[in-house]
Simulated assay, not measured.
Amino acid sequence: MCVLAFAWCAHPRWRLVAAGNRDELHARPADPLARWARPDRLIAGRDRQSGGTWMGVSELGWFAVVTNLRGFGTPEPGRSSRGALVTDLLAGEGRFADPDRADLSTFNPFNLIFADAGEARFLSNRPETLRSRLAPGIYGLSNGALDEPWPKTLRLKAILLDWIVGGAAGPEALLEGLGEERLPDVGIASAVPSDAPFEPAQSPIFIRHPVYGTRCSTVVAVDTEGRGTIVERRFDAAGETVGETALDFSWAG
């Protein structure tokens, strides 16, 4: 994911709400949101190149999302896939399944939010390994540090806050917000590091570009009873909608 707003225990009905866009090269193949045959009980899109995912849920009771972290140079080939970290966390098995013990230094720079029914956590590996618990509230994440005030991140947080204050009904308003293409007017300039060559210095939430742009918008909502919905809206290289998938799931307990 390249821009995300995340609400943790910020509404009496909703335990967790996440809304984000995955920005990626259009040439990089991916499978749409689905229930995976293996690992089972995992619901996510799948990156065909690395085999992992960028955002998803497990019916075992877990949520995870990862963003690349810019400003530390170009990614080093041969390092562990950040998508594999998300997949192992959601599956509850594999080399990186334990967030307290996983060697995060093996990955290129990343930010990650991992949540279950009881707590939400933030993990990163630059400039050093960081594992911290998130207090109830609304957070924003792009390709900088957690809550770094990139204009599009601030704008998406505001959209999520408006959704919560306005009744927090269904995901459609959040999906529409994720499609916003105008430059955010939040009074803060941002600079994108040189290792993000396809992204302009100030970009909208939705990036329409024939080479590198928004590939999908995803909304996840889990209520206090553990009932959840995940919705993915997909786009082609012209930025046009080419598909949408919505799946319900349940967390026990």
Results as ranks from 00 to 15, higher is better:
Cys2Thr: 03
Ala5Gly: 12
Cys9Val: 02
Ala10Gly: 02
Arg13Glu: 05
Arg13Ser: 01
Trp14Ser: 00
Leu16Ile: 04
Ala18Gly: 13
Ala19Asp: 05
Asn21Gln: 10
Asp23Lys: 03
Glu24Lys: 07
Leu25Thr: 07
Leu25Ala: 12
Leu25Gln: 13
His26Cys: 10
Ala30Cys: 04
Asp31Trp: 11
Ala34Thr: 05
Ala37Val: 05
Ala37Gln: 14
Ala37Asn: 11
Arg38Met: 08
Pro39His: 09
Asp40His: 07
Asp40Trp: 00
Arg41Gly: 05
Arg41Cys: 10
Leu42Tyr: 04
Ile43Leu: 15
Gln49Trp: 10
Gln49Val: 12
Gly52Glu: 04
Gly52Trp: 07
Trp54Cys: 04
Val57Met: 07
Leu60Asp: 14
Asn68Gln: 06
Phe72Thr: 01
Gly73Leu: 07
Thr74Tyr: 13
Thr74Cys: 11
Pro77Phe: 01
Gly78His: 05
Ser81Cys: 07
Val86Met: 10
Val86Glu: 14
Leu89Trp: 15
Leu90Met: 09
Leu90Gly: 05
Gly94Cys: 09
Asp98Ser: 14
Asp100Ser: 14
Asp103Arg: 14
Leu104Lys: 06
Leu104Pro: 14
Leu104Val: 10
Ser105Ala: 15
Ser105Leu: 10
Thr106Gly: 08
Phe107Asp: 00
Asn108Glu: 08
Asn108Ile: 07
Phe110His: 10
Ile113Met: 02
Ile113Phe: 00
Phe114Tyr: 15
Ala120Trp: 00
Arg121Ala: 01
Phe122Thr: 04
Ser124Pro: 08
Ser124Thr: 15
Arg126Met: 12
Pro127Lys: 11
Glu128Thr: 13
Leu130Thr: 14
Ser132Asn: 06
Leu134Ile: 04
Leu134Gln: 00
Pro136Asn: 00
Gly137Cys: 01
Ile138Trp: 00
Ile138Tyr: 01
Leu141Ile: 05
Ser142His: 05
Gly144Ile: 05
Gly144Trp: 03
Ala145Ile: 02
Leu146Gln: 01
Leu146Cys: 03
Glu148Val: 09
Pro151Ala: 03
Pro151Lys: 02
Lys152Gln: 02
Thr153Gly: 13
Leu156Trp: 11
Leu156Glu: 09
Ala158His: 10
Ala158Leu: 08
Leu160Thr: 11
Leu161Gly: 13
Asp162Pro: 09
Gly166Leu: 10
Ala169Glu: 15
Gly170Glu: 15
Pro171Met: 06
Glu172Phe: 01
Leu174Cys: 14
Glu176Lys: 14
Glu176Ile: 08
Glu176Thr: 13
Leu178Asp: 04
Glu180Lys: 10
Glu181Ser: 15
Leu183Lys: 08
Pro184Trp: 01
Pro184Met: 07
Gly187Ser: 06
Ile188Cys: 04
Ile188Phe: 03
Ala189Met: 03
Val192Asn: 13
Phe206Ser: 05
Phe206Gly: 03
Ser217Gln: 06
Val220Pro: 05
Val220Ile: 15
Ala221Leu: 09
Ala221Glu: 02
Thr224Ile: 11
Gly226Arg: 04
Thr229Cys: 12
Val231Thr: 15
Glu232Leu: 04
Glu232Phe: 00
Glu232Ser: 11
Arg233Gly: 02
Arg234Thr: 02
Ala237His: 13
Ala238Gly: 14
Gly239Ile: 01
Gly239Gln: 02
Thr241Ala: 15
Asp248Met: 08
Phe249Glu: 01
Phe249Lys: 04
Gly253Leu: 12
